[in-house]
Amino acid sequence: MKVLVTGGASGLGAALVAACRARGDEVCAIDLDPAERSWAHDLGNTDPAAWAALADWLATQGPFDLVILSAGISATGRFETIPLAQHQNVTAVNLAGPIRLVHLLESGHLLRAGGRLICIASLSCFTGYPGAASYAASKDGLAGFARSLRRPMRKRGITVQLACPGPMDTPHATRYAPDGASTKGRLAPDRAAQAILNARSFTIIPGAGPKLAAVLGRLAPQTLTRLMGRVLFSKLK
């Protein structure tokens, strides 16, 4: 099986790459830093030449049976104190880049019939995320994109899935959590990776705690967002 993972160098992406390689898949990765069987590309970069080079590389590696969009960055704090350029970088890397990549894969027929596309969004899609407004925007955007593609792609035999992991024990979580936040209750990335790879449902929420949060978020979206504001945002400001 041929696999493509974005953000394959670190965190959940790296765990997904390792899990796929362990089961014998041929894995290609896209990340900022070049590594073995990977292509260095900044998804937030809009330079046509960089995208043309990526397209050429993908054409030599594909078509793929499984594509996982895992690359992502964040910016946490009060919305207005975070520089605008940082917000724009978050939406570029987490939303515009992935949409453009899927568009590229689609127009190049690089996703094989019978294959799978997994978009890694966030539990924030169910809870809201005050203190990370542009991040929440980008992840909800990716979720809306996955929901929109689900039916048209299924007609062509491609399964689209949306993974919404909660806090994980990755460099990403540590970088963006409030200072002194406990790492207890954070999911290990290799466990999240296994849960995602094994899942058959459209929405994938690894871990029992996050599953519960998602149910509550569905039932009482605004109450949960206010709770997030109290436990998270108040520590960030």
């Binding site: 009060r78 949409i99 809201g128 995320y129 925007a137 992840k139 979720a143 809306g144 967002t225």
Partner: peptide, 29 residues
């Protein structure tokens, strides 16, 4: 914003706007 098969990019942009507003409404309450 809930997803629309006929207009995936527009739907994604409106889902994103929804997530943005959801977070900011709480920050600015």
């Amino acid at each position: 914003h809930k997803g629309a098969a006929g207009m995936p990019v527009y739907a994604a942009s409106k889902s994103a706007l929804d997530g943005f507003g959801r977070a900011l409404a709480e920050e600015w309450r």
